[in-house]
């Protein structure tokens, strides 16, 4: 039990998928203008990431390994992710049309969010079991969502701050992201994993 908890914390905070592994930076910069959008995007990505990590594990263990099809790994994982994203898009559209409007193109773009494919592939690389894969996916998604919301909060404040003209807009966003990343690098000493 303790082992699983450690894995969850390690993936969510110490090896944060955005700030330490630098995966999924596009939605991180793109959908962090408002906290509401960030929460919606975080939830959608959490759903996709967890489900696709589990499905990818299942396909890897029951299809790719027994039939020696490891060379099809990337292809099948992308197929799985695309299907899950399609499903999420339908669900979001049904549940919250407003969120569907605000997320816009970033919702189908979860398909190409490298964090999603990255986590599925890392699961294979690390030889995780079913529960570990699920926790790894969920932990990464949790880390992604938390960082997205934190960063959106920072950017909402930044929008009101007086920023030198040369840094206004995206540049100050990048600088803030860099500083946030530096802060998260400080967790590196906390875990061996």
């Amino acid at each position: 039990m303790q082992e699983y908890l450690l894995l969850l914390v390690a993936t969510a905070v110490v090896n944060n998928v955005v700030l330490v592994k630098f995966l999924g930076l596009c939605p991180f910069m793109g959908t962090s203008n408002k906290v509401d959008t960030a929460i919606g995007m975080g939830m959608a990505t959490t759903f996709v990431l967890t489900l696709s990590a589990v499905l990818a594990w299942a396909i890897e263990s029951f299809l790719l390994v027994p039939f020696e099809l490891a060379f099809l790994r990337t292809l099948t994982f992308i197929l799985v992710i695309a299907a899950v994203v399609q499903f999420t898009e339908m669900a979001v559209r049904r549940i919250s049309p407003v969120l569907y409007q605000t997320l816009g193109i970033f919702l189908p773009l979860i398909t190409t969010n490298c964090a999603v494919l990255g986590v599925a592939l890392l699961n294979v690389q690390e030889g995780h079991t079913f529960v570990e894969s699920m926790l790894y996916g969920f932990g990464s998604a949790l880390g992604f969502s938390v960082i997205l919301v934190v960063f959106a909060g920072l950017r909402e404040r930044l929008a009101l701050a007086e920023v030198p003209a040369a840094f206004a807009g995206a540049p100050i966003g990048f600088v803030t992201a860099g500083l946030l990343s530096l802060a998260f690098m400080g967790f590196a000493g906390m875990s061996a994993g």
Partner: peptide, 23 residues
């Protein structure tokens, strides 16, 4: 065969889902 099977499976599931989640 396995890729085609996966595609067909996901396609069917999504088709069913789109019926239930129609807007």
């Amino acid at each position: 065969g396995s890729l085609a099977m996966l595609g067909v499976t996901f396609g069917t599931l999504l088709g069913i889902a789109s019926r239930y989640l129609r807007v």
